[in-house]
Nucleic acid binder design. Structure first.
Lengths: 337, 337
DNA sequence: CATTTCACCGAAAGCGCTTTCGATAAATTT
DNA sequence: AAATTTATCGAAAGCGCTTTCGGTGAAATG
């Protein structure tokens, strides 16, 4: 503890000089700089971030907002991996992350209001719901922002190449001989959900494969429960698919459960390919074939495009589509005879 | 945007009165309060948090530190679930969470220093490594603190009843007829790892079961890889266990993979019980029997004990041990003949 | 030697807010 | 009617820091 005044008294210099010394101004002699820096170290002096922010109008904080749309909060492994990567990248530049709520001492307020209150330097939002009012409000504001996993023309975005992801999965299944390929989709209110459907449809058309009625089933918001339910719908179909492309790994794991409960084998009876490549994907039985999203680069790119805006004090709107790749493991195999 | 000065000018009152009105002081008439509040709403006025903190010495922020010991960061599902619950509880009281790094504009500093710099009101640390220097430094400081998943005599702690968790698992296996029960342990540098070993050993002794050489194998830091490796060691033993208690779910999933690769069935040949009950536990094949940690209550309790300290401006040292319970699913079954 | 330049330092204002304390006018009491 | 209380407001100091701008003495220049 101790303020800049204490340091000034201790060293005999004015607070002006102390501040300059600490900030490495050129109009302070090396000798006094050294004295001051050492004294600071001795007394364990640390500048008060609030005072600094107040006077510089720069807080070195980045506000993060998770879409709480479906109560996943910060628990979804995919979102999480991204934020972790984002955090590493931004902390290297000296920024701290702040998770703001919509509650300011029991006063209800929007995220934008809260972020303005906290005077964050920039905002990262991880959200897949186009319609989220709070997100739209953030996007329309003047604060530097980057949004992940969603598209928008009004701000910088970074997300996976989900269309290619879909085609990758379908082509892989096609090469294994599958012709009856279903898709358990993410909700169409999400960009990711829609793009993967798009990829599925494009690939099927390209391959001249029909999409039978009921082969495109909505799996909702990527949960295990919904994946299971959706798979059961597929299993009840008159012409059962031999392969299914699932728009999320947790959903895929739910689907696998359904398949097993129906007494069927994977991949002998049905092949399944997931999406995301969450941590456990390669450990479960059968090891999950899945489209891997590069959370590492997504986080890094998001960080750099945000920081660039902050540094240049200028909002930009870029679109950064990150490649995905297929991890072939053991949940897919040749089509059954 | 706009400051309190603008509001003052706009309403014709002094900034003193404006501030008081906004903070609901009693020496401002209801009439002028109403005027000011409305004007504030009209111009979208929001108080600057930094200025407030500077003058009140209260920042309404809580610093969170994850033990980065083994590079898991905020990605581990168990830690994550806790933080999510903690976040919900604290945000209801008006606090924001800040994830600080050890990097302050390319100056290296400790977490304590960083938190002091940011002037957080309290700290939550989620860590299992007793020896972490940074954590010890935090604990010895004067800032209100709560640590999760670790024991300490010098601060408030909240963690699961891991000893009971261990005995729960062993007793369950014993009831199923198992006598050859091994344990893939978490590293003994972690409290959780040690306590679960303790529970294992206590239960085995209680049941008069010997622990053969090699039946207690270190699984390191709870990763899938290490679980797999440890399981392979067990499989190579002259007398193979019929059941294994694994100190973490991800580790258990790795162990399951090893068992399957050895051509053995679960639970027919070997039963396995995990620890944590992570999200996917109930979806994988076979559905994992596991000791469930109550992340919800852990987070809530951590929040309330921290906030209590903040409000009372007085550090307390409490120990809050949260009960666990066994989720019996399909990875455990009767001992093979 | 007079003048300009340069290196180094500090006074002071300002960032946006809270809070103490005193001032004033109105209301109440004697 | 005088004295006291009450209700309402504002001046000013302070929170800890940055930054502009001016000042001083020493060194460099003519």
């Amino acid at each position: 503890m101790g303020t800049i005044y204490d340091l000034a008294k201790m060293t005999g210099f004015s607070i002006t000089t102390v501040s300059k010394a600490l900030n490495n101004y050129s109009d302070v002699s090396e000798k006094t700089k050294a004295k001051i820096v050492q004294a600071a170290a001795e007394m364990g002096y640390l500048p008060n971030a609030h005072a600094q922010s107040l006077s510089t109008k720069r807080s070195w904080t980045i506000g993060v907002m998770f879409s709480e749309a479906h109560g996943v909060g910060m628990m979804h492994p995919f979102f999480n991996a991204i934020i972790e990567s984002f955090r590493k990248a931004t902390e290297q530049q000296g920024y701290d992350l702040i998770f703001a709520s919509r509650n300011l001492r029991n006063r209800d307020m929007s995220y934008l209001e809260h972020f303005r209150h906290r005077a964050v330097d920039g905002i990262v939002v991880i959200c897949s719901d186009q319609m989220d009012q709070h997100v739209q409000e953030l996007i329309q504001s003047t604060i530097p922002i980057v949004v992940v996993d969603m598209d928008s023309a009004d701000c910088s975005v970074v997300y996976s190449d989900n269309i290619t992801g879909g085609t990758l999965a379908i082509n892989h299944l096609h090469e294994l001989g599958h012709r009856l390929i279903a898709h358990i989709a993410g909700d169409t209110s999400t960009d990711a959900g829609r793009a993967r459907i798009e990829g599925y449809q494009q690939a099927m058309e390209q391959l001249d494969l029909p999409i039978p009625d009921g082969y495109l089933v909505n799996g909702g918001f990527f949960s295990g429960e919904e994946g299971k339910r959706a798979m059961n719908e597929l299993l009840a179909l008159p012409e059962r698919p031999t392969a299914v492309f699932v728009a999320g790994d947790e959903m895929a794991i739910g689907a696998i459960e359904a398949i097993h409960e129906a007494g069927l084998q994977i991949p002998e009876d049905i092949s399944v390919v997931g999406y995301d490549d969450i941590y456990v994907a390669k450990y479960i039985t059968p090891k999950l074939t899945t489209v891997r999203q590069d959370t590492e680069t997504i986080g890094q790119h998001a960080a750099s495009v945000l920081i660039e805006q902050i540094v240049n004090k200028k909002r930009v709107t870029t679109r950064d589509v990150i490649p995905v790749n297929l991890m072939v493991r053991q949940s897919t195999g040749p089509v059954p005879e």
